[in-house]
């Protein structure tokens, strides 16, 4: 029950993108196209879950016993970069089309602050292994949901008659703000 509550609260109430404002770069960058956004969500889900798991293992089996917690950020970045490289190899093998669509944004998952953010939040909140896995998966699912919703909205905005002053990025940012407002409405649910 605790895990379910943690999961729902991570997906909706404390959504990583719209409430914690992490990972805004892919939200703006890859949300032009619904299928690309979905693919990006899947790739990030994979990376986030795997890196949350790997960083917990490194933190508790390596950094804490050897008393070298000051290397936390450095080693987490190392792990995330490796997981991203691995994901890129897998995506290139399994879906060349998705690889082409995602382009530069796939390696840029390395610098997605949501990924490092989740790994560091896991340490701060002192989560157990299962808890950090649930937290990682929840954040990833929340990220994917927001990506898909936002890409759908932007596909509609692309066809709408937007005043010239707001056309392009400004109206996207306003939409993101409104969407964030919607997700803020979930607070107090749990």
């Amino acid at each position: 029950m605790d895990y379910l509550l943690l999961f729902i609260s991570t997906v909706l109430v404390n959504n990583i993108v719209l409430v914690k404002f992490l990972g805004l770069c892919p939200l703006m960058g890859v949300s032009n196209n619904l299928s690309a956004a979905f693919g990006m969500g899947l790739a990030t889900t994979f990376v986030l879950t795997l890196s949350a798991l790997a960083s917990w293992i490194i933190e508790h089996l390596l950094l804490v016993p050897l008393n070298i917690e000051f290397l936390r950020i450095l080693s987490f970045i190392l792990i995330i970069a490796a997981v991203v490289q691995f994901t890129e190899a897998v995506v290139r093998k399994t879906s060349p089309l998705l690889h082409k669509n995602l382009g530069v944004f796939l390696p840029l998952i390395t610098t997605n602050c949501a990924v490092l953010g989740v790994a560091l939040l896991n340490v701060r909140e002192e989560y157990s292994l299962v808890q950090s896995l649930v937290f990682g998966m929840g954040s990833a699912l929340g990220f994917s949901i927001v990506m898909v919703i936002f890409a759908g909205l932007r596909e509609r905005i692309a066809l709408a008659n937007v005043p010239e002053t707001f056309a392009g990025t400004p109206v996207s940012l306003i939409t993101a703000g409104l969407l964030s407002l919607v997700f803020m409405g979930f607070s107090g649910m749990i």
């Binding site: 050897l66 000051f70 290397l71 080693s75």
Partner: peptide, 9 residues
Amino acid sequence: VATLVLTAL
């Protein structure tokens, strides 16, 4: 220790 751990990692 730090150097060794990072290198090994």
